[in-house]
C-alpha cells in the first residue's frame, strides 16, 4: 500500500470538507433510545456497524473503484442500484445520497477529473467514495479501507458531543477494533471486480428503524 497512501489519507480524513461532520452514523438516535449508555455499549455499536453497514459500504466502495479504474461505468450505475436495494430505510437512502453528492461536489473543487462528467447524476456515498478513490488513482483496497474508516470515525467523534464519555476511551474502542477492520477491509477488497449482484447484503434492521426515528425527531444535534 506504499503508493497512494497520502491520497488515501486525504480522502478518508474526516476533515475533508464534504459535510460528513454533521452525521453521527445513527449513534445519536441509539443513545436517545437508551441502546448505547456507556463505552462498552459504544464498542458493541461500532462492532455492529463495522460488520454490517461498514462491510457493505467497504465492498461497494471497492467495487465502484474497480469499475471506474476498469472504465466499466455502466457497472457504477448497477452498483448504485444494488446498494440502494440493500438500504431499506428511506431516511438512510436520503443520507447516503446526500453524502455521496457532497463528496463529489467537494471533489470537483479539490481534484477536478474527467470522470465527474461521465458518472451518473446521483450516487450513494460508498459508490461515490469508490469513484473518488479512483479519481485519486487509489486502488479498490484503499477505497474499502477509507470508507470503513469513515463509517466508524463519524460515530466515534460524535459520541463526545452526545454522551458523557472520555474521548480517550472512544479512541481506545477504535484501536481495539483495528484487527477486525483490517479483516473486513481485506474481504471487501475481493469484490473489486465482482458481479454487482453478488456483493454482500449484511442487514442492520435496528439501524434502519433508528434512522427512521431520528429523521422524525424535532430536535437533534446531528443530521443522522
Amino acid at each position: 500500500m506504499a503508493r497512494g497512501t497520502e491520497a488515501l489519507l486525504l480522502l478518508s480524513d474526516g476533515r475533508l470538507p464534504a459535510g460528513g461532520y454533521a452525521h453521527s452514523g445513527g449513534l445519536e438516535s441509539a443513545i436517545r433510545m437508551g441502546r448505547v449508555n456507556d463505552i462498552e455499549d459504544l464498542k458493541r455499536f461500532l462492532t455492529g456497524r463495522a460488520t454490517t453497514s461498514g462491510a457493505v459500504a467497504a465492498a461497494f466502495a471497492a467495487a465502484a473503484c474497480g469499475a471506474c479504474l476498469g472504465d466499466r461505468l455502466e457497472d457504477v450505475s448497477v452498483l448504485d442500484d444494488e446498494f440502494q436495494a440493500r438500504t431499506p430505510s428511506p431516511a438512510l437512502r436520503q443520507v447516503s445520497r446526500t453524502l455521496g453528492r457532497q463528496l463529489l461536489r467537494a471533489m470537483t473543487a479539490i481534484h477536478p477529473h474527467q470522470l465527474q462528467q461521465r458518472l451518473p447524476r446521483r450516487l450513494n456515498h460508498p459508490v461515490a467514495f469508490g469513484a473518488a478513490a479512483a479519481m485519486l488513482d487509489l486502488e479498490p483496497d484503499d477505497a474499502a479501507r477509507g470508507v470503513l474508516h469513515e463509517t466508524l470515525m463519524g460515530p466515534a467523534m460524535a459520541v463526545v458531543k452526545l454522551m458523557s464519555v472520555d474521548p480517550f476511551d472512544a479512541h481506545r474502542a477504535l484501536a481495539e477494533l483495528v484487527p477486525l477492520l483490517d479483516t473486513i477491509a481485506g474481504d471487501a477488497a475481493t469484490y473489486a471486480d465482482a458481479d454487482p449482484a453478488t456483493l454482500p447484503a449484511f442487514g442492520a434492521p435496528l439501524s434502519d428503524v433508528v434512522a427512521e426515528h431520528h429523521a422524525a425527531e424535532e430536535v437533534r444535534l446531528f443530521a443522522s
Partner: peptide, 20 residues
Amino acid sequence: VETGACPHTAIRDDVTMNLL
C-alpha cells in the same frame, strides 16, 4: 441546512452542505 451542532464549520471550514 443541518449543521451537526457546528454552525461555524458550515460557513467557513466545510461549506459543502451550504454550497449545494
